[in-house]
Write a protein that binds this DNA or RNA. Structure first.
Length: 259
DNA sequence: ATAATATGGTGAT
DNA sequence: TCACCCTATTATC
């Protein structure tokens, strides 16, 4: 589930459930007992997403959540059901209960640590305050392949493995193109398409990169163009895949040119 | 039914 | 380079 759209969607969903209320915070699984005790009974003052990170503010301190590969948020109305699975954190307001299972990262940050985290994350395509020039300056000066750069959260935040593959295919750019061979015009297209697609992702609460598809049926299915697919929907060529930034990237050598 | 795989990133080795 | 986090879907029998 978790590329940037999932986290921004969670922020939108959970704000009205938690913000402005005193929360009962616990760790049913037991691996966040100290942190839960520290936050228990305090008022949640805001929820903000930065790339794939979610920050629940409690005054100056913040609960920092990163879902990793298989962490999940589960929300329900009160009264809450028994915790299901390994619930690291449960936060209950008067009205709702939010459970977080299997996060990669679950910690309390001081104000200073929170600012440091935000500072090391690149511009987030889903944030209106994002500055694409920061990403452009990194990309245009780098010999690293664009497929690697798009996955580097310090260069550009929010894009994950599926969006990387799909954005490059839609914009007909080979993932193996060096960053410094990307023109400003091409970069602008990549950035705009990322913004466009992740916004759709927030709305649908799913990754959809095929124009005209509205609903998510299965995980891939008709929702993506070439990710995990054998053939290109545009030209029917074989889709080639390679390891890039530690994950499998896909490309169509006919449709996607180096630059 | 059970097994394999992955939309991610950190910290140890 | 690898273990970890331990969910959800997909693949295989």
């Amino acid at each position: 589930m978790p590329e940037g759209h999932t986290i921004h969607r969670a922020a939108l969903d959970q704000r009205p459930m938690l913000v402005g209320q005193r929360l009962d915070v616990s760790s049913p699984q037991g691996r966040f007992l100290e942190g839960a005790e520290r936050l228990d009974g305090r008022t949640c003052t805001g929820i903000e997403a930065y790339g794939k990170h979610l920050l629940y503010s409690f005054g100056d301190e913040a609960l920092h959540i990163h879902l990793g590969l298989f962490g999940v948020f589960k929300t329900q109305k009160c009264p809450a059901a028994e915790p299901k699975g390994a619930v690291r954190v449960r936060m209950k307001s008067n009205s709702h209960c939010v459970d977080i299972n299997g996060p990669n990262c679950c910690e309390i940050l001081s104000l200073q640590e929170k600012l440091a985290l935000i500072a090391r994350i690149g511009p987030d395509v889903l944030r209106s305050d994002a500055d694409p020039d920061r990403a452009w300056s990194r990309i245009s000066r780098s010999k690293t392949q664009i497929g690697v750069l798009l996955m580097d959260q310090s260069v550009i935040a929010g894009i994950g493995n599926i969006y990387r593959t799909e954005i490059l295919w839609r914009q007909k750019v080979s993932p193996e193109t060096p960053g410094n061979a990307i023109t400003r015009e091409t970069f602008d297209r990549l950035w705009s398409d990322a913004v466009h697609l992740l916004k759709i992702g927030v709305k649908a609460n799913a990754i959809i990169t095929v124009d005209g598809v509205k609903k998510a049926r299965s995980r891939y299915g008709e929702r993506v163009n070439i990710f995990n697919k054998p053939n290109c929907p545009a030209c029917a060529s074989d889709i080639r895949h390679m390891e890039m930034a530690g994950r499998r990237a896909y490309t169509c050598d006919t449709c996607q040119q180096p630059s």
